[in-house]
Computed example of a mutant assay.
Amino acid sequence: MRRIGIVTGTRADFGLLCRTILLLQGKSDIETVVFACGTHLSPEYGLTITELEESGIKNIIPIEMLLSSNSRVGVAKSTGLATICFADAFASHNLDCLLVLGDRFEIFAAAQAALFLGVPIVHIHGGEVTEGAFDEALRHSISKMASIHFPATEPFAKRLMQLGEQPSQIFVIGAPGIDNIVHASKANDIDLHDVVTFKNLEAPLFLVTYHPVTRGDAKENDINPLLNIIRERDDINFLVTYPNADAEGALMIKLWLELENLNNVILYPSLGFKRYLAVMKQAACVLGNSSSGLIEAPSFKIPTINIGTRQKGRPKSCSIIDTSMNDIALMNAIDKALDTDFIFQCTQAINPYGEGNASEKIVKILSEVDLSDCQSKPFYDRDNT
């Protein structure tokens, strides 16, 4: 029996991991332990651990590690606390490997603990670039700690080789987020009226998520230009989901709450990934700096307005409108997203992150891969091969 640990710390990474977890838990020769941490356990961010339970996930172990402070010091201390808590949890569960996704600080903490305990690490979404977040450094660090890699695209796989990772341990699978679109029940089956109750039901719907920029231009964390545009564009309905629990996140939430009395704005701490995709399916545009606008939205053939530098370096489809955090640029981007010619262009979009079935590939490989020699990691030097 192979015992696999899985870490999820946010609504976002759980949405990407959910199908993989359910497929693993359906296999008789694999036992899983799901470690839920971070904002999953925070009422302020929607207490999304309930979504794991509602999705049918079994054997969930809560890991308390998130401090109430969202400052940079608070994030650093939360990372240290998380490493301690994960070390205890992993040591008591005798894991054969640990499956993690992405680049969050809680995932970095889990990888550190697993590395020191000699637990092989399997990493999804490595090799990517997001220049506007310190997550990029965390992602590459996790990749160097990992033994098995599941990048989304061939360019990401090549970047992992540049980091010295062995080609034989790199498996290009596409983006797991696309699986939710392909395999979930039809998003149109969810009635938007059960999620949102705007006064003007005929207005186009924009799905908004803006996360703190943790590396680069700090001015991008001033979201007042975005708020000003939303106040001005009363011809559009805006459904806003809360930012990540990074430094500046709490301040952004306070600013968003200033708009909660507007008829064309609805705030959600978390929609959960199923309702989030249902809203995206029926939205006119995705607005903000979330990776979902680049990875999932192109599969729905709708425009994405990508603000600032947080996602700089990611591959982008023709449906992406890059803009900066200022009033004029944002207004122009919104006008473009509503332009009929651009909307038609989006219907021709090809998603660079694949067509789905990443979860099946992950489960097959994890069922068959040899984990016995994972701690031996010779550096792959492409110039000497």
Results as ranks from 00 to 15, higher is better:
Val182Asn: 00
Val73Phe: 06
Asn263Lys: 03
Ile236Asp: 08
Asn384Gly: 00
Arg382Ser: 10
Leu95Tyr: 08
Thr48Leu: 02
Ser141Arg: 04
Trp256Gly: 03
Ile49Asn: 06
Ser291Tyr: 01
Arg159His: 09
Val195Ser: 05
Lys254Ala: 11
Thr323Ala: 02
Ser143Val: 02
Ile334Asp: 09
Glu220Ser: 03
Glu106Ser: 11
Thr197Gly: 14
Val195Lys: 08
Pro62Val: 08
Ile61His: 15
Asn351Cys: 13
Phe35Tyr: 15
Glu154Tyr: 07
Met161Lys: 03
Phe105Ile: 01
Phe14Gly: 01
His123Leu: 06
Asp341Pro: 04
Val119Ser: 10
Val208Asn: 06
Pro43Glu: 13
Ile343Glu: 11
Asp322Pro: 05
Ala82Glu: 06
Ser92Ile: 02
Ala245Lys: 14
Ile21Leu: 09
Ala113Met: 12
Ile302Ser: 08
Asp327Ala: 04
Ile302Thr: 07
Ala109Gln: 10
Glu154Ile: 11
Val195Asn: 04
Arg314Pro: 08
Ser147Ile: 05
Ala247Met: 05
Ile230Ser: 01
Pro378Lys: 12
Gln311Glu: 02
Asn70Phe: 10
Ser168Gly: 12
Leu201His: 15
Ile121Tyr: 09
Ile30Asn: 12
Gly354Pro: 00
Thr130Phe: 02
Glu296Cys: 09
Met252Cys: 07
Thr130Leu: 01
Asp381Gln: 14
Asp341Ile: 12
Leu138Glu: 09
Ser317Phe: 01
Ile334Lys: 03
Lys312Leu: 13
Gly293Tyr: 08
Ser78Asn: 15
Gly126Tyr: 05
Ile173Met: 00
Ile302Cys: 11
Lys254Ile: 08
Gly46Val: 00
Thr39His: 09
Ser141Asn: 08
Ile148Glu: 03
Pro243Asp: 00
Pro315His: 03
Leu259Glu: 13
Gly74Arg: 04
Ala89Cys: 14
Ile334Glu: 07
Ser55Tyr: 12
Lys316Ser: 06
Leu262Asn: 05
Thr385Leu: 03
Gln375Tyr: 11
Arg11Ser: 14
Phe238Arg: 09
Phe273Asn: 12
Lys316Phe: 01
Met331Gln: 14
Ile236Gln: 06
Ile223Pro: 05
Ile4Arg: 03
Ala203Lys: 15
Ile178Asp: 06
Ser367Ala: 13
Lys336Glu: 15
Thr32Val: 08
Ser143Asn: 04
Phe300Glu: 14
Leu259Gln: 11
